[in-house]
């Protein structure tokens, strides 16, 4: 069965691009969210297998949202997306339970590579 994905990013532009990339590879985008609140709501209704999460959102600070997501749905694989390349943020995120890190700007190959590595 195809894996289901939720995309969390406050930019519609980014969400559209990510959607285009993952759909082409057969993932099913079941939900999108532009804010932390929306993300949590969709998490409960759509129960995605994979979550692409932008850590810079207007209504959430640092890694709070990641913590809530991991607590609410530990079986989902969270891939953190952001242009912030700071090592300590990545390390913290991985400690909390993020499965991978995707650094912006990304091209389609990079996104798919990260997602496919998750499966392995």
């Amino acid at each position: 069965m195809n894996q289901t994905v939720m995309i969390v990013d406050d930019s519609l532009f980014m969400r559209n691009i990510l959607r285009g990339i993952v759909q082409e590879k057969g993932y099913v985008v079941v939900a999108e969210a532009a804010s932390g609140i929306e993300a949590m709501k969709n998490l409960h209704t759509h129960k995605p297998d994979l979550i692409l999460l932008d850590i810079v959102l207007p209504d959430s600070n640092d890694l709070e949202l990641l913590e809530s997501i991991v607590a609410a749905r530990p079986q989902a694989a969270v891939v953190l997306c952001s242009a912030i390349g700071q090592e300590d943020v990545i390390r913290k995120a991985l400690d909390i339970g993020a499965k991978a890190f995707l650094q912006k700007p990304f091209n389609p190959e990079k996104v798919i590579q990260v997602l496919e590595n998750l499966g392995g």
Partner: peptide
């Protein structure tokens, strides 16, 4: 900072290097 940062990310993704 957030606006500049988002714009940079978007531009880089589209390959608009001077904007980024």
């Amino acid at each position: 900072f957030r606006h500049a940062h988002s714009l940079k990310g978007m531009a880089a993704t589209m390959g608009y290097d001077p904007v980024a």
